[in-house]
Nucleic acid binder design. Structure first.
Lengths: 196, 196, 196, 196
DNA sequence: CTATAACCGAGACGGTACGTCGGGTCTTTTA
DNA sequence: TAAAAGACCCGACGTACCGTCTCGGTTATAG
């Protein structure tokens, strides 16, 4: 296998491919995404896709990252001093995202890809979830300093306490994701975390 | 489309198909599961599969259910009176299951199917997760009666508080699933749920 | 490689494939003949072609044979007793065939296939040229009996003496193929063959 | 389209391309000859090939000519006064060439090219066959002067009478090309041509 | 004796066709 | 008369080459 020279890469084609992949999933769902369709929509030869990505899943993840990545910066969670309010705000925002059909579709597609390919899973977790989880830990650390969270609380578990329930309900569709539900989860988490 | 007569169904073929599907996933992973491979392995015509199942996903889910379903009965959670001990025992058992490579593979395959097809998702949730979640709620209800859990606690959320973090960590592979971790989750949940 | 069962072969598809191949060459030339085009024109899956033929060349040869083969029966050369007249008639007929653009195209395409694949060459020679050459030898044998051709003349070479010059001129396009030319070749051959 | 300046042409590249093309056919057969393979083997950019040749066929023909062309000069046929002996010698030499696997491969490849492209056919005929045919005609003219060949014999047809049978047998592989066969052909031709 | 244009190696690009795999349907043969 | 066997149409796969098109780098005349 000869590795291509990235310096010579056609930036225009790269962008056309990513946006074609993204749009196709948005329009027809991930199951109908094919490399040929991406190539056709992007006005590109199939080989140009295979030259730079190992699979259609990788293309799709890159496409989502290209869109998501633009939103860099507003990663830090609000820190009003009122931990409960801040957590409720974050969980409600997440619930809103999952309720957006577009984002719902994309997220489930990403999840399928992550399940099929551990490498893609790593990439997704590191580049998308990771920063968000770290921002959440940072907020909790701040709360620890303020004495609102037990000093010895394991913050890795703490974030899972916050996001795990919502993720569970979203994945399994066991019940609707509402703001009220977000508040309940936040309330439970607060109780679990607060200093004795 | 003609609906076949279930009475005339060949039970031997049915079983051969289900066990072929199950074994193929166990051996080569879900991605390589094909209807043709199932038919060949089961010594069955493809049409016999399409006659009774709408998709390979449905076959696979049925196959898992056929295996899982045999374990009926021991669904009730232990109730020693010590809620903390009981929850730790349950979460440790779940962690063990996720750490079993065979079950891990099957669970991820099921998850992909559920993501691809809402109908299959419903079936999985109702027939596999449902009874388990209900058993957990039942144990928590018992704890409520014993005054160990707040009377007004939303038990639907409570079970997500228990299983959500573990599910989150398993799905995203963010960190290993250990007994210690199970204990930590149980501990947090207990604090969140206990009566003020 | 599993060999398919000829008994189950779809006769309609077979015919559609052969006539599609033939027509495509007649319309656009052999260089533009592709398996995909044959499949599309015949309303057939590519696999159905690959199942029964090893290459597009084999399909094409079969197609020509299907057309040519129908003309069975009039293989015997005329035998008026006048060998010279009979040979002139045959060579003129051959010259006419080579001058028909349709047949010219087909013949050159066949020749390319024969050059690329010795197996196809054998098939062409045996099924198309062979009977014709044998018929010619038979006419010459008759002439030997009549004392018009030397008894010890090698008839295998004799037919090459008749057809070789025309074939040479046709293949290399060194000069036009006319009836006059056919007569000249026949005249030379007669002189070469006649009993001393 | 801009025509490049031949003065600036890299002679080293030209030679590398021709010999790469020749060697590749000798090693793997004409069917596997590709422009990319030639470029790679010659250590040359593809564009350098397309700049100077219109097709891979043209490259190959040039390659053969470059090799063949070196043998210039010995084109004249032997003229010992014994026409029969001279013709037998020439036909035997031709038979030997066709029996050399290397030359056989090259000749068939050239023939395919000639069939595919009339322009190449012309070039081959004029530059390779032409001089040889003319030399043969010249020898026959000499024989006419010596009264060994009929004065009114059409010499264009005469050379075809000599080479046509061999060409026919070589192309169709109907029988082996032996010296004995060459002698037989020469004998027939002599009889056909001699003055009455 | 530069400089500026050309050719050159390299190889990415938009395409076409390849030969294969598998999906889901339809037909023929066997028990 | 259902089921096995498997041929069929179809769509997509990932690969091989096509012929075109930049990219620097290197000659090699023309100023």
């Amino acid at each position: 296998m000869k590795t291509p020279n990235p310096a010579r890469r056609n930036e225009q084609s790269r962008r056309a491919i990513l946006s074609a992949a993204f749009d196709l999933v948005a329009e027809s769902g991930y199951a109908k995404l094919t490399v040929e369709a991406i190539a056709a929509r992007a006005g590109v030869g199939k080989q140009t896709i295979y030259r730079w990505w190992p699979s259609k899943g990788a293309v799709f993840v890159d496409a989502v990252l290209a869109v998501t990545g633009d939103e860099k910066g507003h990663l830090a969670l609000p820190d009003t001093g009122d931990l409960g309010a801040d957590l409720r705000a974050v969980l409600r925002a997440i619930v809103d995202e999952y309720n957006d059909p577009r984002l719902d579709t994309m997220s489930r597609a990403m999840t399928i890809e992550a399940l099929n390919d551990p490498g893609i899973n790593t990439e997704i977790v590191e580049r998308i979830m990771g920063p968000h989880l770290e921002a959440t830990r940072e907020r909790l650390r701040s709360a620890q300093r303020a004495g609102q969270v037990a000093e010895d609380a394991d913050l890795d578990v703490a974030v899972e306490l916050l996001y795990g329930p919502i993720y569970h309900r979203w994945m399994l569709r066991t019940a609707p994701l509402t703001h009220e539900y977000a508040d309940t989860v936040a309330e439970f988490a607060l109780r679990a975390l607060r200093a004795a």
